Amino acid sequence: MKLRILTLTAVTLLIVSCGTKKAAPVATATPAATETAKTTELTPALAEGKNLYENSCARCHKLYDPKKFSQEDWKPILVRMQKKAKVDDTQIALISNYITSQL
Protein backbone atom coordinates (compact mmCIF):
# COMPACT_ATOMS: atom_id res chain seq x y z
CA MET A 1 0.00 0.00 0.00
CA LYS A 2 2.81 2.42 0.89
CA LEU A 3 4.51 1.68 -2.42
CA ARG A 4 1.36 2.57 -4.36
CA ILE A 5 0.93 5.85 -2.44
CA LEU A 6 4.58 6.81 -2.99
CA THR A 7 4.37 5.94 -6.68
CA LEU A 8 1.14 7.86 -7.11
CA THR A 9 2.63 10.85 -5.28
CA ALA A 10 5.78 10.76 -7.42
CA VAL A 11 3.78 10.58 -10.65
CA THR A 12 1.51 13.42 -9.52
CA LEU A 13 4.49 15.62 -8.62
CA LEU A 14 6.12 14.88 -11.97
CA ILE A 15 2.97 15.79 -13.89
CA VAL A 16 2.38 18.96 -11.87
CA SER A 17 5.98 20.12 -12.16
CA CYS A 18 5.95 19.66 -15.93
CA GLY A 19 2.60 21.32 -16.40
CA THR A 20 3.12 24.54 -14.42
CA LYS A 21 6.03 26.02 -16.32
CA LYS A 22 5.24 29.62 -17.18
CA ALA A 23 6.85 31.41 -20.08
CA ALA A 24 8.29 34.86 -19.55
CA PRO A 25 6.57 37.63 -21.49
CA VAL A 26 8.42 38.66 -24.61
CA ALA A 27 8.98 42.38 -25.06
CA THR A 28 8.57 43.60 -28.59
CA ALA A 29 9.73 46.93 -29.87
CA THR A 30 6.97 48.96 -31.43
CA PRO A 31 7.70 51.51 -34.15
CA ALA A 32 6.38 54.30 -31.92
CA ALA A 33 8.80 53.38 -29.14
CA THR A 34 11.67 53.24 -31.61
CA GLU A 35 10.87 56.68 -32.98
CA THR A 36 10.65 58.29 -29.55
CA ALA A 37 13.97 56.85 -28.41
CA LYS A 38 16.51 59.62 -28.64
CA THR A 39 19.83 58.46 -30.02
CA THR A 40 22.69 60.85 -29.58
CA GLU A 41 25.94 60.14 -31.32
CA LEU A 42 28.69 60.31 -28.78
CA THR A 43 31.77 62.35 -29.46
CA PRO A 44 35.01 61.00 -27.99
CA ALA A 45 34.61 63.34 -24.99
CA LEU A 46 31.02 62.22 -24.40
CA ALA A 47 32.03 58.58 -24.78
CA GLU A 48 34.73 59.10 -22.16
CA GLY A 49 32.18 60.76 -19.88
CA LYS A 50 29.82 57.81 -20.35
CA ASN A 51 32.64 55.41 -19.57
CA LEU A 52 33.53 57.33 -16.41
CA TYR A 53 29.88 57.49 -15.37
CA GLU A 54 29.39 53.76 -15.85
CA ASN A 55 32.64 52.70 -14.21
CA SER A 56 32.95 55.24 -11.39
CA CYS A 57 29.33 55.37 -10.31
CA ALA A 58 28.41 51.72 -10.75
CA ARG A 59 31.09 50.63 -8.29
CA CYS A 60 28.89 51.74 -5.40
CA HIS A 61 25.29 51.81 -6.63
CA LYS A 62 23.01 51.20 -9.59
CA LEU A 63 23.21 53.65 -12.46
CA TYR A 64 20.36 56.09 -12.78
CA ASP A 65 18.89 57.05 -16.10
CA PRO A 66 20.15 60.57 -16.84
CA LYS A 67 16.57 61.61 -17.69
CA LYS A 68 15.40 60.71 -14.20
CA PHE A 69 16.63 64.06 -12.88
CA SER A 70 16.79 67.54 -14.38
CA GLN A 71 20.06 69.31 -15.08
CA GLU A 72 19.61 71.38 -11.91
CA ASP A 73 19.04 68.19 -9.89
CA TRP A 74 22.18 66.55 -11.27
CA LYS A 75 24.55 69.36 -10.21
CA PRO A 76 24.43 68.75 -6.42
CA ILE A 77 24.35 64.99 -6.95
CA LEU A 78 27.56 65.11 -8.98
CA VAL A 79 29.25 67.47 -6.52
CA ARG A 80 28.35 65.18 -3.62
CA MET A 81 29.46 62.02 -5.43
CA GLN A 82 32.71 63.45 -6.82
CA LYS A 83 34.58 63.01 -3.55
CA LYS A 84 33.14 59.55 -2.88
CA ALA A 85 33.98 58.33 -6.39
CA LYS A 86 37.45 59.90 -6.21
CA VAL A 87 37.19 61.66 -9.57
CA ASP A 88 38.89 64.95 -10.34
CA ASP A 89 37.32 68.13 -11.71
CA THR A 90 38.10 67.24 -15.34
CA GLN A 91 36.49 63.83 -15.00
CA ILE A 92 33.39 65.20 -13.27
CA ALA A 93 33.05 67.76 -16.08
CA LEU A 94 33.12 64.92 -18.64
CA ILE A 95 30.49 63.01 -16.66
CA SER A 96 28.36 66.14 -16.35
CA ASN A 97 28.60 66.83 -20.09
CA TYR A 98 27.59 63.24 -20.87
CA ILE A 99 24.57 63.40 -18.55
CA THR A 100 23.52 66.79 -19.95
CA SER A 101 23.76 65.41 -23.51
CA GLN A 102 21.35 62.61 -22.57
CA LEU A 103 18.64 64.90 -21.17
Rank of each mutant, 00 (worst) to 15 (best):
C60Q: 14
K62I: 15
L46A: 10
V79M: 07
Q82I: 13
E54W: 09
N51S: 12
Q71T: 10
D65M: 00
K75V: 11
D89N: 01
D89I: 03
L52T: 09
S70C: 12
D65S: 04
T39M: 04
T43A: 05
A47W: 04
P66W: 03
A58I: 00
D88K: 15
E48W: 06
E72M: 09
A85G: 08
R59E: 05
P66F: 01
R80E: 08
L63I: 10
H61F: 08
Y53A: 08
A45I: 14
S56R: 10
K83C: 00
H61N: 02
S70T: 15
V79Q: 12
A85F: 00
I77K: 11
H61R: 08
A47Q: 15
E48T: 14
T40A: 10
A45N: 15
T43Q: 08
T40M: 09
L42S: 03
P66K: 01
T39G: 04
W74R: 05
K62T: 13
G49D: 01
D73M: 14
Q82L: 13
W74Y: 03
T40G: 07
W74D: 04
P44Y: 05
L63W: 06
D73H: 15
T43H: 06
L42V: 01
K86M: 11
E54C: 12
K68R: 07
V87C: 02
E41S: 09
Q82T: 14
